[in-house]
Design a protein around this nucleic acid. Structure first.
Lengths: 342, 342
DNA sequence: TTGAAAGCGTTACCAT
DNA sequence: ATGGTAACGCTTTCAA
C-alpha cells in the first residue's frame, strides 16, 4: 500500500505568499482583471507558472454557481434502443462545441431503472452540470418531464410534439420517410411495406408518417407494416413476417439501417435478390449501410450536426437566452446506393 | 429574454431552519451518522424529502477533496486513430462500473493540439476528476508521461513496455497476431503478408510481432509488410501495394477490421475472390466484420471488459491501493467466419 | 493600485 | 445526543 506521491496542490494562497501579494491580487491577475498593474500581473503569472498552478474546479464552481460542464444523457442504453453509432456521432458533435468553449463533458447513461431516481436526475440536481442534452428519450419518459419542470436547462434531441415548449433539436423524419418511399415508388414499385421502430419513439412515428403520406400521394396502399425495435434481429423477424403474408412485396422502407441489415439477411436466406426481387431503403447512414452487400440506400441523418447544435442551444439556455423558435429541425437527405435498384 | 423560473436551490441550512435543528445535525442525519437519534433522523429526512434537497456536488467535492468522477480520456479522436466502435465498447464498460459506484463519468477528447496543454491535463489537474483512464495514447505521448509523473491516479489502456511501472490494462495482441497467422498457416497458406497499424502504436507493434513469430515457427518468411493507419482507405492502398509487388500472395493478416474491409474492396475491384484467391483475417470484431461479404474472420477483442477492468483499477488507485501486478493483459480469441476459408 | 474579508454549501471537530 | 464553528479554494465587494 505505498502511498502515491501526490503532488501537493497549489492554491492561490501559495502564489500570493511566494509573490508577496494578496490572494485577491493573484485571482484578479490570473483572470486578467484591469485593476492589476501590468508589471505585477507578469510577476504573478510567472510564479503561477513556476508552481504549476491550476484552478480548483470545485472551488470555482461553488463560488461561481456554475460548473462549466454539460451533460449528455442517454436513457436506456442497455436496452439497445437507438444504438451505438448514432450516439457516437452525437457525442462527436457535442464534444466539439464543448471543447470550443473550454468546457467539460459529462456522460450519463441509465442502464436500467434500478436506481429509482434516474441517474440523470441526480446529476443535474446536484449541479454537477449546468445543463443537459437528452438523447433519444422515449416520448413519454416521466423523468424528462420532471427535469423540464424543475427549470434545469435542458435540450432534447428529437421531435416532441407533446412537449411543445421544450427546446429541442430534431431531424425531418417525416420528410425522410417520405423521400425514401417516393424513391421506391419512382423505381416503379407499387407493393411497398415498411418496418418501423418502436411506436413509443417519436422518430418511429414520424418516419412511418412520411411513408404513409408518400404512398397516399401516389395513390397506393401499404402492403404491410411491421414493428421492430431498431435492432438487427427484429428487422430480420419483421421481414420474415412480411414475406410470409405478402409474397408479392416489391420493396420495403426500413426505419433504420440495423433492421435493414436484418432484412437483407432474411431475404438472402430465402434466396431473394436485393434489389432484383425486393428493393430496400434504410435510414440513418451511420456506417453499417456502406458495408453491406448490396450497399444500402438510406436516409442520411446529420447526427454530428445535431450534436453540435444541441450543445450550442444548451449553452444559450444556460445563459438564460431561450432560443426562438424553440425547436429546430435539420433536413435529411437520401443517399442512394445499390439496395434500391439505382 | 424571459428568465427561466429556476427552482431556488435547497441547502442544508434550509432544512435545518425548517426542522429546527443545526446544519451539522442535518448533515449527519442525511449521511446516517450514528450520533443522531432515530426519531430526529426521520424528521430531518422527511423535511429534506419535502424540500427536494440534493447535495451540491461542488461543495461536497471542495470539502471532501474528492469529486466522485472518473475521466475517460481519448487523445487524438479527430485523427481517427483507433476509431469509434472500439471507443464505444470501452465507454460501455467504464460506464457500467461508474454506475455501480454511483459515480459520474467525464469524457475528454483532444481533437487537435491547438490547446497546447492537452485537454486532459487541464481536467485532471483542476481536480475535476479523481483519476483518469487513458485510451489509445501513442506510446510516446509526452502528456501521458507528465500526467503519470504528477501523481494523479491514471490507468492506461494498452500495453506500454516503455512505462513499466504504470498501471495498465491491455489485451494479448502478440497472441492475437500469432493466432490469426497460425490459422492462416493452418489453412495451408505459405505466402502470407500483413498490413499493420501505425508503428508508433504499441498495438501495431505487438500484432506484427505475433505475425512474425507465427511465421518463423512455421519456417516461413513474410511475403510483404505494409503499414496503414487503421482506416479503411489505408487498408485499401496497402493491399494494392502488396498485390502489385507480390501477385502470388495467398493470405493477409490485417491489423484491424476497418483496414480489412478496405482490403476486401481492393481485392474485389481486381476480381480476386476472398477466400478463394486470397484469405483474410482481421482484428477487433467491433461489428464491421459481421457485415462484410464475405464476413471477416477476425480476432475478438474484449473491449467492454477492458473498460470495466480499467475502471475498477482506477477506483483502486484512487483509494491508494496500487494493484499488483500493475499490468493486466486480457486474452483475445479468434473468431472464424468466411474470409479465412473456414 | 492593492489588501482584507465575506461567503458559496459541506463536513468534521470541539464544545456543550 | 446535538449545536457552533472552522476550513476546503475561489471570487468579489468594500476599504484603504
Amino acid at each position: 500500500m505505498a502511498q502515491a506521491p501526490i503532488s501537493r496542490r497549489v492554491t492561490l494562497r501559495d502564489i500570493a505568499e511566494r509573490a508577496g501579494v494578496s490572494v485577491s491580487a493573484v485571482s484578479m491577475a490570473l483572470s486578467d482583471h484591469a485593476r492589476i498593474g501590468e508589471q505585477t500581473k507578469r510577476e504573478i503569472r510567472a510564479v503561477a507558472q513556476e508552481l504549476g498552478y491550476v484552478t480548483n474546479s470545485a472551488a470555482r464552481a461553488l463560488r461561481a454557481q456554475r460548473t462549466g460542464t454539460l451533460a449528455l444523457v442517454v436513457p436506456n442504453t442497455g436496452q439497445h434502443v437507438f444504438n451505438h453509432p448514432y450516439f457516437m456521432h452525437l457525442l462527436d458533435g457535442v464534444n466539439e462545441v464543448v471543447n470550443e468553449v473550454d468546457g467539460t463533458l459529462l456522460i450519463s447513461t441509465n442502464p436500467d431503472e434500478r436506481h429509482g431516481v434516474a441517474a440523470y436526475e441526480r446529476i443535474l440536481r446536484s449541479r454537477a452540470a449546468d445543463g443537459a442534452i437528452i438523447a433519444s428519450a422515449a416520448a413519454d419518459d416521466p423523468g424528462v418531464l420532471r427535469l423540464l419542470d424543475s427549470g434545469v436547462p435542458v435540450v432534447l434531441v428529437g421531435h416532441y410534439p407533446r412537449i411543445p415548449d421544450a427546446v429541442a433539436i430534431g431531424v425531418a423524419d417525416v420528410d425522410g420517410g417520405r423521400a425514401a418511399t417516393d424513391h421506391l415508388v419512382g423505381h416503379g414499385a407499387t407493393r411497398i411495406a415498411t418496418i418501423t421502430g418502436p411506436h413509443n419513439h417519436q422518430t418511429s412515428i414520424d418516419r412511418l408518417e412520411g411513408f404513409t403520406r408518400s404512398l397516399h400521394a401516389a395513390g397506393l396502399e401499404p402492403v404491410g407494416i411491421a414493428e421492430g425495435d431498431f435492432g438487427e434481429e427484429s428487422g430480420r423477424a419483421a421481414t420474415a413476417a412480411l414475406l410470409d403474408e405478402h409474397s408479392d412485396m416489391q420493396a420495403i422502407f426500413v426505419a433504420n439501417d440495423e433492421m435493414a441489415y436484418g432484412a437483407l439477411l432474411e431475404l438472402r436466406a430465402r434466396g431473394l435478390d436485393v434489389p432484383g426481387d425486393v428493393r430496400l431503403v434504410g435510414y440513418d447512414d451511420f456506417g453499417v449501410s456502406r458495408l453491406t452487400t448490396p450497399a444500402l440506400s438510406t436516409v442520411t441523418v446529420p447526427a454530428v450536426d445535431v450534436g453540435r447544435r444541441a450543445a450550442r442551444r444548451l449553452l444559450d439556455l444556460i445563459d438564460r437566452n431561450v432560443p426562438e423558435p424553440r425547436t429546430e429541425t435539420l433536413p435529411v437527405s437520401l443517399t442512394t446506393r445499390a439496395s434500391c435498384g439505382c
